[in-house]
Design a protein around this nucleic acid. Structure first.
Lengths: 156, 156
DNA sequence: ACACTGACTTAGACGAACGATAGTCAGCTA
DNA sequence: TAGCTGACTATCGTTCGTCTAAGTCAGTGT
């Protein structure tokens, strides 16, 4: 990676760094696993704990944090003949984190599993496999060596 | 997200899940920050510690783990008149993790910073801003509701 | 020969993350 | 009214991630 930004400055190391900030919200394994379950369609407390294979206290803590951070929202709902319960739904902010998970899936499939991984993502319209890619506003696909990191106007 | 996969099965919860496996390699904040620095061009031990703002013992531990996992490689090098030193370089496996970092940058800029974030990624060829996107093999851009999670042949 | 620098390691302490186990509480259902 | 279930909370102990402070060690420059 190149760019006008002098990496020696290290000025991004502070809390303005978007990576650093993002990691404030999802830095733990359990947070990622809870989000994974949310994307898979899990909505109920017990299911989060069971499917993410984390203990209930951890599930409760993580769900609370993710709700506080605005990635999930708690919603009352009632099935006929049942009492009112809560379910957890991804907000737009939470949904927008999906590329991170998708990139982890893709990388894990490619590098950590001999068979290319047990699952893949497909486009529901045509069944074609999905890839995470970097693309510039002009529509070009961007390879690893073709990107610059630049400061926004007024930031340096 | 929909798909043939019954989320209730929870069969992905184990260690075959690519997300889970990926998190084995990079689950800590310091690992992400070390990788961030590697992408920014950092190569030397001290610089990793300083720029990622982590202590030297943590830098040493993380660098060792990342080398063991095959994301970085250690290389001897010698500047004229200097003694032989080591530097850390991203391998292909490590480089291929960049979309994860890029997705975190994008999400952090969008949701955690009022001004859209201090930095952005640009295509070095034409200076256009870069986005992380999901695209299927047929070339369609894939939105949040348009993806299926499916098991690979022989996996279910 | 001695100081200096880069690249670490060692020791000790602390809080956060996590698991296991057990308990609570509200509202159906019998 | 008593039991059952879903959704938690409480307590305890352990491991993990991290820090600070200090020490090591090899090669270079003086």
């Amino acid at each position: 990676m190149t760019g006008e930004l002098d990496p020696r400055a290290g000025w991004l190391a502070g809390d303005r760094c978007p990576i650093y900030r993002s990691l404030d919200v999802v830095s733990t394994r359990s947070a990622f696993l809870i989000l994974r379950e949310a994307f898979y369609g899990t909505t109920r407390f017990d299911d989060f704990a069971k499917r993410a294979r984390i203990s209930e206290p951890v599930a409760a803590a993580r769900l609370r944090e993710l709700v506080d951070a605005g990635l999930l929202e708690r919603e009352d709902y009632r099935e006929p003949g049942q009492r009112t319960r809560q379910r957890y739904k991804l907000t737009e902010k939470g949904t927008d984190l999906f590329p991170v998970l998708a990139a982890l899936i893709q990388w894990g499939n490619r590098w950590l599993d001999e068979d290319g991984g047990p699952i893949e993502l497909q486009h529901s319209q045509d069944g074609e496999p999905i890839e995470v890619e970097l693309r510039c506003a002009a529509g070009h696909r961007v390879g690893p060596g073709e990107l610059d990191l630049v400061a926004r106007r007024g930031e340096l």
